[in-house]
Design a protein around this nucleic acid. Structure first.
Length: 500
RNA sequence: GGCCUCAUCGUCUAACGGUUAGGACGUCAGGUUUUCAUCCUGAUAAUCGGGGUUCGAUUCCCCGUGAGGUCACCA
């Protein structure tokens, strides 16, 4: 599988963030490249200066790094086909565009933006598809020379075939046929001298020896342009894969306006990389084992293939993502989860790590490492997202103001008298406990409950309520363990007083 | 509107002509548990419509319909 010189690229434009759909594309690229011992390249498509955003490139690197997707060549690490910033490759694009004009497969267009806008509007008014009327395609050499002489700004357009069919070959979808009559003479080089995406991407792909172009389905309409550009340039034809779109719940293309789409949004929301990656992979792809849904990156590396990609657009469902996330949270070792939590809180700028403690600024608490670990373990059992961790800590630092009615629970067979009995029952037992650990707490109390002939709930429910003051909380033993003897006794005492 | 793509439970999907149309998420109902969550059990629900081809269509073909994408000197 090595030496096949498979080379794929991810070519985002620097719009400020990495879209999850782009991450999914990156995953496909990366997995395929790894399987074939090839190279994965990042090229930044920044030929539209108007759209370039400060810090956007850093955001792309950061997201890929977070996801654990390494690059072989990029603007940052360079490579044999540098530069990897598309705008820096402009001279080459211009050279190719001029060559095409000389060879007669492209032409100079002197039409003004105003004329084009007018043209489009009148076509739309008449219910016609907006298309350039190819006025300049028919200019004589002398007419062109005249305009050039005058210094009239111009673009360069590709000469698309006037009749016949343009046939594309998609690895996933097979043949795609486009009637030539529907095609427009796309602009290759803008008046500002920069190439459009169409020219730039094709030239760069060829120059960078890209073998497979994996891109979203939204590119299918411009596929025929790309085919003709590649042919005109005399470049080898790479293989194309047009993946499905990811949709909002309303079935429109996943967009920023309708919800979070940036990878960073998901990091902030407290999703684990394993979960996001696994989820993204299961939207539009299934493995060979059809009943398997949980995949590690290593497993994906073994079984991924383009031919199991789906062709129908897929809705992005948060419920499923959450399920993956909760699943991964629970399946981790406490050490691993703690590491993820620290990484997450660091990302959120909400943790200060010292040798023996963690400080969480948002709640003004410094927590010893051992205690922190316990809190992680308790939260692990119920957290869906890491963002729930810090709020879950409140119960350990303050006792909520609560009403004694919380104690009463029919199912637990706890009424006012029983609640009081439970407090009175627990206090002396706790007083005597020497080794304050979750295990000994549990062992001792459970033994005493059995000995006294109570139902577990009759004692433990009131205990849980007194320790948390909440209808829902971590377990009684878990809380007691973290709270320590003194605070535990105190809270039970408070409960007893409330009941009196 | 033109062109292109797509079409199985609410959602993600499996079934490369023959299955009681499978799994997962969600939802609902039970059970375990000191609450919640987890966990276990069960239930729920789908082949867009019409024609073909075939002994037999979710599967192949055609026509509808629907959804989406795209029609910039943006990518």
């Amino acid at each position: 599988m090595t030496g096949s010189n498979v080379r794929l690229r991810l070519a985002p434009s620097p719009t400020g963030f990495l879209h999850v759909a782009t991450l999914r594309l990156a995953l496909y690229n990366y997995l395929f490249v790894q399987q074939h011992g090839g190279q994965f390249i990042l090229r930044i498509e920044d030929t539209d200066q108007a759209r370039t955003v400060e810090g956007a490139i850093e955001a792309i690197y950061a997201a890929l790094e977070w996801a654990g997707i390494p690059l072989d060549e990029s603007p940052k690490i360079g490579g044999p086909y540098a530069p990897y910033m598309q705008s820096e490759r402009t001279p080459r694009h211009q050279e190719v565009a001029r060559r095409l004009v000389t060879e007669g497969t492209a032409y100079r267009c002197f039409c003004t933006k105003e004329r084009l806008t007018e043209l489009r509007e009148s076509q739309e008014k008449r219910g016609l598809p907006p298309q350039y009327d190819r006025k300049c395609r028919h200019m004589t050499e002398t007419e062109v020379a005249e305009e050039l002489q005058k210094g009239t700004p111009h673009t360069i357009r590709i000469k698309m075939p006037l009749e016949g069919e343009i046939i594309g070959e998609d690895l996933l979808r097979g043949k795609i046929v486009f009637p030539a009559k529907d095609q427009d003479d796309a602009i290759l080089l803008k008046t500002d001298g920069f190439a459009t995406y169409h020219l730039a991407a094709m030239v760069d792909d060829a120059d960078m020896k890209i073998t497979h172009v994996v891109r979203g389905e939204e590119w299918i309409p411009s596929y025929p342009k790309h085919i003709e550009i590649i042919k005109a340039c005399g470049f080898p034809m790479p293989k194309f894969v047009h993946t499905t779109l990811i949709l909002n719940e309303d079935r429109t293309k996943l967009s920023k306006r309708k919800g979070p789409v940036a990878v960073s949004n998901f990091i902030e929301a407290g999703y684990l990389r394993e979960a996001l990656i696994n989820f993204l992979m299961m939207v539009g792809w299934t493995g060979p084992e059809t009943n398997k849904e949980l995949y590690t990156m290593d497993e994906l590396l073994k079984v991924f293939s383009f031919d199991r990609l789906t062709t129908a657009p897929a809705v992005f469902k948060y419920e499923k993502l959450d399920w993956f996330n909760g699943n991964y949270i629970r399946s981790k070792s406490p050490e691993a989860l703690e590491a993820d939590l620290v990484e997450y809180l660091t990302y959120m700028k909400n943790i200060v790590v010292t040798e023996d403690a963690f400080t969480i600024p948002s709640i003004h608490q410094t927590i010893p490492r051992a205690t922190f670990r316990k809190m992680v373990t308790h939260a692990q059992q119920k957290m869906v997202k890491m963002s729930e961790f810090v709020p879950s800590l409140d119960v350990y630092f303050s006792l909520a103001e609560y009403n004694t009615s919380l104690f009463f629970n029919e199912k637990m067979k706890v009424d006012a008298a029983m609640a009081k009995t439970a407090m009175a029952f627990l206090l002396p037992i706790l007083e005597e406990i020497q080794e304050w650990s979750i295990d000994s707490l549990k062992e001792t109390i459970m033994a005493k409950i059995a000995e006294a002939g109570y139902k577990n709930g009759q004692i433990l429910w009131p205990m849980r309520v007194a320790l948390s003051g909440l209808p829902m909380s971590p377990g009684a033993f878990e809380m007691a363990d973290v709270l320590g003897k003194e605070e535990t006794m105190q809270r039970l005492q408070t409960g007893l007083e409330k009941l009196s």
